[in-house]
Nucleic acid binder design. Structure first.
Length: 253
DNA sequence: AAATCGGTCAACCGCACTGGT
DNA sequence: TACCAGTGCGGTTGACCGATT
């Protein structure tokens, strides 16, 4: 048995919003605030599904939206955040005031992707297009790249939670000597990480990780924060405050 | 002037996540 | 623990519009 539809589709409008609908929605939200999208259309006198109202408000009607062209700074920030977060548009949008996830997603697909491709950079991996597959480039250390090769690396499909979990496991497997070198003051944001597949986790040796390291947050492990055994008073880096790459922590900043 | 093409972006859809019971 | 409703997210679609043929 499937989930009940979010609204009576037979009695709802679809497609482009009219000026009148916009005004009704705006007036209702100004009077009653956001929330309870399911009941909002009825209360506002709109023949729309709640999801549609939410989307219209968030992507178009919200008064704090910037609109207009993206600046060079925004371009760069989007590229850097995408290299770090992947297609987590809502998290990227949270770092760009006045921009919506939909807007950034569209902008990425229509402008930035093309721009990167024409510069010979693979927009999915942020690595040069000609670079051999199966290699992961890490540039934590200034002026020096670390290239790690994984055998049998699988591109593409991943479960929704796999990134942070696999990233966490992957970080733990990094050799101790290498970890020490991460304690550099200037983390290069243009890092490219591709988490290993499940298969590689089996191939790898057991993780060498000390119990005290588990209590260090992601920033301290990278050396971005001054550890002092963490717990973490370091202020966070891009909102990454947990031991693993915890995307959700970005939202609260 | 008409037809076609390609780019852009608003909106939709389906699934995942979360919190309440 | 399981179920359900509400909400959020990312991928995709399709209408629109300007450029080109």
């Amino acid at each position: 048995m499937g989930r009940s539809p979010c609204c009576e589709k037979a009695h709802t409008n679809k497609g482009a919003w009219t000026k009148e609908e916009d005004e009704r929605l705006t007036a209702h939200i100004k009077a009653h605030g956001e929330g309870c999208w399911r009941s909002l259309p009825k209360a506002a006198g709109l023949l729309r599904c709640g999801k549609s109202c939410r989307l219209r408000w968030i992507n178009y009607l919200r008064p704090d939206l910037k609109r207009g062209n993206f600046t060079e700074e925004e371009d760069e920030l989007i590229i850097k955040l995408h290299s770090l977060l992947g297609n987590k548009w809502s998290l990227i949008a949270a770092r760009l005031p006045g921009r919506t996830d939909n807007e950034i997603k569209n902008y990425w697909n229509t402008h930035i992707r093309r721009k990167l491709m024409s510069s010979g950079i693979d927009p999915a991996t942020h690595r040069p297009l000609h670079e051999q597959q199966g290699k992961t480039t890490i540039s934590f250390i200034k002026g020096e790249e670390k290239i790690v090769e994984f055998e049998g690396r699988e591109e593409g499909k991943k479960s929704s939670n796999s990134s942070s979990e696999e990233m966490s496991i992957w970080l733990r497997r990094w050799p101790e000597e290498e970890k020490k070198q991460w304690r550099c003051p200037d983390l290069n944001l243009e890092l490219c990480m591709s988490p290993p597949s499940q298969k590689q986790q089996v191939l790898c040796q057991e993780p060498v990780i000390k119990s005290e390291e588990l209590s260090l947050c992601f920033n301290c492990r990278l050396g971005v924060n001054k550890s002092s055994e963490c717990k973490c008073g370091g202020g966070g880096f891009l909102g990454l405050n947990s031991g693993v790459l915890d995307y959700r922590s970005l939202e609260s900043n």
